[in-house]
Design a protein around this nucleic acid. Structure first.
Length: 296
DNA sequence: GACCAGGAGAGAG
DNA sequence: CTCTCTCATGGT
């Protein structure tokens, strides 16, 4: 065998180690399994494997120590929001027994800083679906349109760039089990040819303006826009309302507002307004604790 | 088959 | 502006 070929194919990966700061809780399991990201899986060996943009990352937690490869230390600290004072954040909305129980149950859950383009398309793919289906869809789309990433553990696929999705035909997208969302993805890819410039323009806007601008994209309604603002643009006052959050809010906070029919825009706004007033500027964090602690 | 899932667009009123 | 109907897909 040609040694040069082997060298080219074998990606040199450095194992990094990071010790968490005392008093700043972090749970890798809760953070990756709570449903905010869709491209991570935990192996039976205790290692999480995930693809973020065009990076294949392996990471595990042993107590206060994180071991990882595929990206550097700064990436991990930023991606998992290890710079957040989590105790101060949860304390800011820990104001009744119900949310307190969710905070206790999900101690160490942190919001991830997702790449904006990837987050946007992921949540366009998420509408009216359950989490396993969303994961399947996104992985099929990455296999069909993403850049291959060669590792010693096999071939993975990066998240598709806008250009790759623009050239896609409807038949291929339908093979990705996209359903009616395929057209939304393609249209959005056509509108956002430069993902970095698009992200810059959104992040330069005040939250409500950014929200309205996001909702001009095909397939992006109030829920998807709020998820993108919260997960990709660090707008922690966003409060995405899905069927689960609506149920929880109806049962524990707004019994006279939350109905049982389909969620109207008016009710959506009433819920998120209450949440912002009640939980405060970090209500998006509160939302994630409520969602993670939900009982199916 | 009905019903549901991290909903949103189109059309009617 | 607000309500209702419809939209693929897979799992229960």
């Amino acid at each position: 065998m040609n040694p040069k070929y082997v060298l080219h194919r074998t990606v040199y990966r450095i194992m990094h180690e990071l010790t968490l700061m005392a008093g700043q809780p972090f749970s890798l399991d809760l953070t990756l399994s709570c449903g905010q990201v869709f491209r991570w899986e935990k192996g039976s060996d205790g290692w999480w494997r995930g693809i973020v943009d065009n990076n294949m990352i392996r990471i595990r937690q042993d107590g206060e120590v994180l071991r990882f490869e595929g990206v550097n230390r700064q990436f991990i600290e930023h991606y998992f929001s290890l710079d957040h004072d989590l105790r101060a954040i949860t304390a800011s909305f820990d104001r009744d027994p119900f949310i307190h129980a969710a905070v206790e149950q999900c101690r160490g859950l942190r919001l991830i800083r997702q790449p904006p383009w990837e987050c946007l398309i992921s949540y366009i793919c998420s509408t009216n679906s359950n989490i396993p289906m969303i994961k399947k869809r996104i992985n099929l789309m990455a296999q069909a349109f993403g850049d291959p990433i060669e590792t010693d553990g096999g071939t993975y696929y990066g998240f598709p760039k806008p250009r790759s999705l623009v050239g896609s035909c409807a038949a291929v997208l339908s093979e990705c089990k996209m359903g009616y969302r395929g057209g939304y993805v393609k249209k959005t890819a056509c509108d956002i040819t430069d993902e970095r410039e698009w992200a810059r323009s959104i992040s330069s806007l005040p939250s409500e303006d950014a929200r309205k601008t996001l909702m001009e994209l095909q397939g992006v309604g109030p829920k998807a826009a709020d998820c993108v603002l919260l997960f990709a643009f660090q707008k922690y006052e966003s409060f995405p309302v899905d069927v689960w959050i609506r149920r929880i809010m109806g049962k524990h906070y707004l019994p006279n507002i939350c109905g049982s029919t389909s969620l109207s825009n008016r009710e959506y706004d009433a819920i998120r307004k209450f949440a912002k007033d009640y939980f405060g500027t970090y209500c998006g964090y509160a939302q994630e604790y409520l969602f993670a602690a939900r009982e199916d």
